[in-house]
Amino acid sequence: MEQPVMALVLGLVAVGTLIWVFWPKKGLLARLGKVRMSSQRVLLEDTLKYLFDCEYKGIACNLNSAAGNLNISADQMAKLMAHLKDMGLVVFEGHNIHLTDTGKSYALRIVRVHRIWERFLADETGVQHMDWHGEADIQEHQLSLEEANRIAARMGNPAFDPHGDPIPSTEGEIPPFSGRPLSSLKEGEVAQIVHIEDEPHYIFEQLSALGLYPGMQVYQLDVQQGKITFAADGNECVLTPLFASAITVQPLPKAEPIQEGYQRLSELQPDETANIVGISSYCRGLQRRRLMDFGIVPGNSITAELRSASGDPVGYRILGTTIAIRKDQANLIFINNIKKEQHEQSA
């Protein structure tokens, strides 16, 4: 009776070890990867990136804020900065720290790789939008600029990353920062969302859950202490100033505010017809092309036809064919003018 017990224990240990090694994010392999991540070079590059971000947005930057951003102690940061200074990448001006020209072009190279990789993940892979930033934070230190350039060329040299940030050109050019936080918009102003900050994570997730994305038109309705009310593509949203400041907008002084709101395709009930307004920019790459192939483009009308036996997906009639769309996709398709379909009775 001893032997089977021993064998069972050994078997369980073996299976447990395998799971422990390969478990995503928390397993041994993943942890080893993370250890490699926090090497000296990675820290230096992250510091450069932070300094560039401050300068780009015109925010003053000192040792403590940098240490806070990288989540390391001020002592460690002081050592890093001294190292960067020796390398001729930064200069000190009193408490403030600036990048030298060499430092700036180094930082721009990392930013370029980071944003190209985010764009690649968004358009060419199935990685979820919550994971784009984290994956790019790893790749920016591993991918060479040449490799990134090749990927960019294959995607048609995109100008923006999926969050709406401009991708620096190969020559290191980048357009000047022109956005303002949504919280600074006055009542009655119309603007376009150009960027949604992907850090901290919980704010980004909340904002994407609300369906806000770069490219939407916002129309400031009401600004109060602790509460900002605005219409995003015609739909009313309420945010606290903290959340609103994570959204960067570019004012559109001449634009007319979009009056009419939209609903989501998932709200369409069987036998109802609506007009398609558009597809959310969170639906990208292959999936977006597929939907467009089917005729999901602004202006076409769409009818919910039948629900599957398990409730999801739903069959929709568009351009004379019936296609099934899952609920999480239908959530990303915007419609308006919902009408009950008139059944023609065959006389």
């Binding site: 990685v127 019936t322 296609i323 099934a324 899952r326």
Partner: peptide, 18 residues
């Protein structure tokens, strides 16, 4: 779908022909 194939591009489409 949650481990090795996580990064592969994914889309859903299903036509219901007459």
């Amino acid at each position: 779908s949650r481990s090795v194939l996580k990064g592969e591009a994914s889309t859903f489409s299903l036509e219901l022909p007459p």
